[in-house]
Each structure stands twice: as structure tokens, then as C-alpha cells.
Design a protein around this nucleic acid. Structure first.
Lengths: 166, 166
DNA sequence: CCTTGCGCTGGAGTGCACTCCAGCTCCTAG
DNA sequence: CTAGGAGCTGGAGTGCACTCCAGCGCAAGG
């Protein structure tokens, strides 16, 4: 049981709060990353126990998951910080934060669409390999020219062989 | 019309082939990136015109789009190279390439799921802001304690305010 | 002829997001 | 008391994927 001594913990941190290791395991972020995020201002509110160790209240966990969602969906660290700090200018209020989130939302949807397209490309390629293998082709095989031409017409050979000779 | 002189082009490259600039514009990859990919072995078959400039046959375009799909879906450059070269060992044949693509396919689907989850997290947060604003809250407002408690119970305040005082 | 523009090469430089490390404190177990 | 283990700090280091650059050649326009 590596649980920290309850004796040294303040009322606030008693029982409910998590150590950095737990948070790391819960979120999948490395301990170093958690500390680095904090230094960089992505995780502003980390309390400490009396011996100086970080204690994360359960709410922090939810907050970290939001940060994680933003990061994983491609928002640069600087923008996440801007969102968190929301210190002045456009982001001084909830409406500003809301706008930022909505922009990110749109970006995510775009990314989803792109990812689906890319998936389709890869799947098409997989289909082309199945096609080739179904024809009994493998790298070293000699292929009859007519079969080859047919495949070429299907656009199945792109990148597999040099283009049709001129 | 910055079209290269047809006089110097070989039979193979006549008319149909593209210059690096066109390819860049078609694919969205920068010219530098195209050259770098080639050096790194992600684009093996680039022909040259008589004056040494790259000429991309139309098939290359399709090929580049596959590479792009793999990269954008998170496959490291080294793995793309492994796929392209398919020089020996596991990847010496179509079945090997197929396996690699299918692994990537699974990875993409996982990424899609993750992205959808992250989208949900962001949308939930957006919802919470709407909720807050619907209650007429903004940063500097003084909020009656009972409203605050209710919101807190809803889990809407994570990251917006310090956690409930002990 | 000269200039302008595109492309070429090899190599150096950049930006981002971590990741690692030395040297320290504190706590607990033996 | 001692040793071991977790966490702390500030700062340096790393890996990846480009991105930029100097110095060059070729070709078309004026």
C-alpha cells in the first residue's frame, strides 16, 4: 500500500485527493507531462500536501481530461494555455472561452472527416491488395500482360509497379 | 503560363506528367516536403526531365495520396518507409504489406473512436458554458451560493472555479 | 547579352512537445 | 539509524518532421 500517510494531509486533501501517480495512471499522461503541463500553465490549480507533494482533487481529473481532449484533438499547447488562462482580451469571459471551444469543435469535426477520408484511402488500398492476391499475384510472379492491363485500368497498381511503359 | 518547355521533355513525360509545384498544389504537401519525402524513401519513383527536374506521372499523385493518408493517420515516417520499401523480411510480399495496412486500419478506427470521445468531452464543456450563461453568469458576477451548489453538483464547474471550499 | 524565375542539392536550423536528469527532501520500513 | 522509495525543482536533452538556406544550373524573355 503506497498510500501517503493520512496523518500529514490537510482537511482538504483527506481521502478524496489523488497523488500524481494515480492521476498519471488514470489519465495516461506521464508524471513528467503532468508536471510540465503545470509549469506551462495548462493545469493551474494544483494543491500541495504539507510535505510539498501535489494533491489532485477529483475535479482536477475532469479538468485534465478536458485538457487532454483539447490536446489530442490537435489544439496546440499555447492555445490550451490561452483557454485556461482566459486572462484578458477576447478570452476574458465565458463567451470568449465558449467561442474558442466552438472553434475547436469545428476543427475536430473537420479532422474526423479527414480521418474518414484517409481511412477510405487505406481501405481502398487494402481492397486492391486483396484483388491482386485473389488473382494469385505476388511480387516475383510473372503476370500475363492482359491481366496487368486490366488491373492497371482499375487503378490498382498505383505505387506497386512503375507506370505503364510509354 | 509557367509550363515547362515541351521541347525538352521525353516521350514519357510529355503532357501527362506534373511538375513539383503542381503536385504540391494538388496534394497540399510543400515542395520541400515532397523533396524530403523522396530523400527519405517515401516516394521512390520520381522521374526526371532532361534538365534534371522532377516529373511526376499521374499515378504518382495517387501514390502520394496514400502516403499522405498513412502519415495523417499517425503512421510514423519510418513505418511508411518500411511499407514503401517492403524490401525484405515480413514485408517482402503483398501479404506483408496488406498486414501492415490492416494494422493501420485498426489504428485509424481506434483514433476515430478516441476523437469522437474527445469531441464529446468538448461538447459537454460547451454545454456547461451554455448552461452557465443561461443562468446569467459571467466571470465577475457574484453568484448566489445555492445556484453555485447546484451547478457544482451538476459537475459543470470543473476547471472554472476552485473546488468547493472544504 | 543579361536578368528573372524555377528547380536542384546537401546540409543546417527550427518548433513543438515532451522526457530525462542531478541533486535534493521527506517519509516509512526494517 | 539506515536504506529505500516517491516526489520535488530547474534545466538540459531528445525525437520527430519538417523547413530554410546558400550556391548552383538551366531556359525563356527582353
Amino acid at each position: 500500500m503506497p498510500r501517503p500517510s493520512l496523518a500529514v494531509m490537510t482537511a482538504v486533501t483527506r481521502e478524496t485527493s489523488l497523488g500524481i501517480r494515480q492521476v498519471s495512471e488514470e489519465t495516461g499522461l506521464s508524471i513528467d507531462t503532468l508536471r510540465w503541463y503545470e509549469r506551462e500553465g495548462l493545469l493551474p490549480l494544483v494543491e500541495r500536501s504539507t510535505d510539498g507533494r501535489r494533491r489532485y482533487p477529483p475535479g482536477a481529473l475532469r479538468f485534465i481530461r478536458l485538457v487532454q481532449a483539447l490536446r489530442r484533438t490537435g489544439m496546440p499547447v499555447a492555445d490550451v494555455r490561452a483557454f485556461i488562462e482566459a486572462g484578458g482580451g477576447e478570452l476574458a469571459n465565458h463567451a470568449g472561452r465558449l467561442a474558442l471551444l466552438e472553434r475547436q469543435c469545428a476543427a475536430i469535426e473537420q479532422r474526423l472527416a479527414e480521418l474518414r477520408d484517409d481511412l477510405a484511402v487505406v481501405q481502398a488500398k487494402i481492397g486492391s491488395y486483396h484483388h491482386l492476391i485473389a488473382h494469385g499475384l505476388n511480387c516475383e510472379d510473372d503476370v500475363p500482360e492482359d491481366v496487368l492491363d486490366q488491373l492497371r485500368d482499375d487503378g490498382l497498381l498505383a505505387g506497386l509497379l512503375p507506370p505503364a511503359p510509354a
